[in-house]
């Protein structure tokens, strides 16, 4: 079985500074793939390169067998990759429902159909009762779920989550983990997440990749990776497990 997302030897530099160096990874259909690593390891840069925000300086990215490196973000999304932002960016002046309708309009010509789809997603993410609030007035956990909802409304095959657990209380983390598990199980959604909250990573991920100074230092099943001496030395040792 070939990978849904295949990153091969991707590099990205900023003014000569190597942010991501020769990173390769394969994400299989239905995987929940976690990317971990210390701050500044290049995780978000890698994400943005996959999403088309940056064009890689080297290497290739393929999604469902099709090259996507260098494609603009909107095109990448249309091909079936949804994303959230590390610093949440819902459309602040619009209602929660309108935020998600906009996502749903990607594959729905009619606004009414999109609204139905958006309401379904909001119910699923437990945001339905807040649907008429302005996005800007939501609490941080709600805004994070709104971003997930908006991305889901675009009906992605692959969902990229950039630190959706950060800043959440443990019970909120558990709730988000439950949502992700449910999505993965019921709709077969493939998920790649950048995460610092190891509790969530261990509960969710089927595979883990560790990035350090822009390079892959370990990759494998979560239980193996957290025992890797190099990973403990460069990342986990410094943080609570």
């Amino acid at each position: 079985m070939s990978a849904l997302l295949s990153v091969a030897g991707v590099s990205k530099r900023f003014r000569g500074l190597l942010a991501v160096g020769n990173v390769s990874l394969d994400v299989m259909e239905r995987d929940i793939f976690a990317i971990i690593g210390p701050n500044g390891a290049g995780k978000t840069t890698l994400f943005n390169t996959i999403c088309g925000v940056f064009r890689p300086d080297g290497g290739t990215i393929a999604f469902a067998g099709e090259r996507i490196d260098g494609h603009p973000p909107d095109e990448v999304c249309r091909l079936g990759i949804g994303r959230t932002f590390q610093l949440v960016r819902p459309f602040p002046g619009l209602s929660v429902l309108d935020n998600v309708i906009i996502g749903a309009l990607l594959h729905h010509r009619s606004v009414e159909d999109a609204r139905a789809r958006a309401e379904e997603v909001l119910r699923r993410l437990d945001l339905f009762n807040q649907r008429h609030q302005r996005a800007a007035s939501l609490t941080l956990p709600d805004r994070k779920r709104l971003e997930v909802a908006r991305a889901l409304a675009t009906q992605p095959r692959l969902l990229l989550l950039d630190e959706v657990m950060a800043g959440l209380r443990p019970t909120e983390v558990d709730r988000m983990v439950a949502i992700m598990t449910e999505l993965n199980r019921t709709s077969g959604l493939t998920i790649v997440l950048i995460e610092h909250v190891m509790r969530a990573v261990m509960a969710l991920a089927t595979r883990v990749l560790v990035l350090h100074h822009g390079a892959v230092i370990a990759q494998g099943a979560p239980a193996e990776v957290v025992r890797d001496p190099q990973v403990i030395k460069s990342y986990l040792g410094a943080e609570e497990l």
Binding site: R78, F85, P90
Partner: peptide, 10 residues
């Protein structure tokens, strides 16, 4: 509201 976010939803 947010051009980058708009592109991210296609």
């Amino acid at each position: 509201e947010d051009e980058d976010a708009a592109r991210a939803v296609g």
